[in-house]
């Protein structure tokens, strides 16, 4: 897989505030890339630079083999963005909104009608076409936001906290659509989110803290590096668990034992084979990774 986004030594300051400090990372074509960080970590600044809305101070940004410097208009044609809050015109109908935005990519007339049909089929919003965007429910509006981001058939879809505030059903629908697009169109998805379960599904994760990259890797690499494993043992007494000599916690019908890594878990199981009749080994969660790396918890957008 080739890199579709390459960022090297990117920096951006607003007066005294260093929003982004010398960050470098790559996003491979077709992958789901997650960008994690609390509010103010520098995620939105980086996205705004990629989208050509902010000028960088230093560094290079290469999108699909083209440098951002001097190719901004070409690059804008390859990017679609779903913003955290719907930014469509609430007073206008869904059709008027999509038509006015499509024209900005020079998609008009028959080309627009064709694209609209494709998007209506994909996102099932034919019945909403004449309704003002301001009268739609949160989930319906999100579907239209995605349709708007996909108007220009982008190679890179940037999702800026797309599921914040959505109900689980709508969140699932959104991810189903994105998954279909990735499979069928090999679309690269650049995601910022506060939901760790969404980040756990990513192919690659970058954690940003105070404008700097604190950690990066696949979810597995991050979990292996920054968290241990957990062995959940069922049908044993607390005295038996204490014999293992590892930290543990009691849960409803079992005990969860913390181990530094999977090989340590294997050693324990071999040594105390008699008590491991019903058990499971799980990796640490992305929440634990984030907490270890930044010392902060991500909780629906709030820093703890």
């Amino acid at each position: 897989m080739e890199n579709i986004i390459e960022i090297k030594h990117l920096s951006k300051s607003f007066g005294e505030v260093k929003a982004v400090q010398d960050i470098s990372f790559q996003v491979k074509e077709g992958e789901l890339f997650a960008f994690l960080g609390v509010n103010g970590a520098g995620k939105s600044t980086t996205i705004s630079i990629i989208c050509g809305q902010l000028k960088k101070d230093f560094g290079t940004v290469i999108i699909d083999g083209q440098s951002l410097d001097g190719n901004i208009d070409k690059i804008k044609n390859e990017i679609g963005v779903v913003f955290q809050d719907s930014v469509l015109d609430k007073a206008l109908s869904v059709r008027d909104n999509l038509q006015s935005r499509a024209a900005l990519y020079d998609i008009t007339g028959e080309a627009f009608r064709k694209r609209l049909c494709e998007l209506m089929k994909l996102l099932e919003f034919e019945d909403l076409l004449k309704r003002p965007v301001g009268k739609l429910s949160g989930g319906q509006r999100r579907r239209i936001d995605i349709a708007r981001a996909l108007l220009n058939e982008p190679k890179i879809l940037i999702l800026d906290e797309p599921t914040t505030g959505l109900d689980p059903q709508t969140r699932k629908t959104l991810w189903d659509v994105i998954s279909t697009l990735r499979k069928e169109k090999n679309m690269t998805v650049f995601l910022t989110t506060h939901y760790m379960e969404e980040a756990a599904d990513a192919d690659y994760v970058v954690i940003l803290d105070s404008g700097k990259i604190s950690a990066q890797g696949t979810p597995l690499e991050l979990k292996n590096t920054y968290t241990g494993d957990f062995i959940t043992i069922y049908g044993v007494s607390e005295e038996q668990v204490q014999v293992l000599g590892r930290p543990y916690e009691a849960i409803r019908d079992a005990y969860r034992v913390s181990v530094p890594n999977t090989s340590d878990a294997t050693e324990l199981i071999i040594k105390h084979a008699d008590m491991f009749n019903d058990y499971e080994i799980t990796k640490g969660k992305m929440d634990d990774v984030f907490l270890t790396v930044t010392g902060k918890k991500l909780n629906g957008g709030e820093k703890e």
């Binding site: 050509g52 208009d73 804008k76 913003f83 809050d85 930014v87 900005l104």
Partner: peptide
């Protein structure tokens, strides 16, 4: 104010 400007400026216009 309502963020629509961002949605317009991400286009090649």
């Amino acid at each position: 104010v309502n963020g629509t400007r961002k949605d317009l400026t991400i286009t090649p216009v």
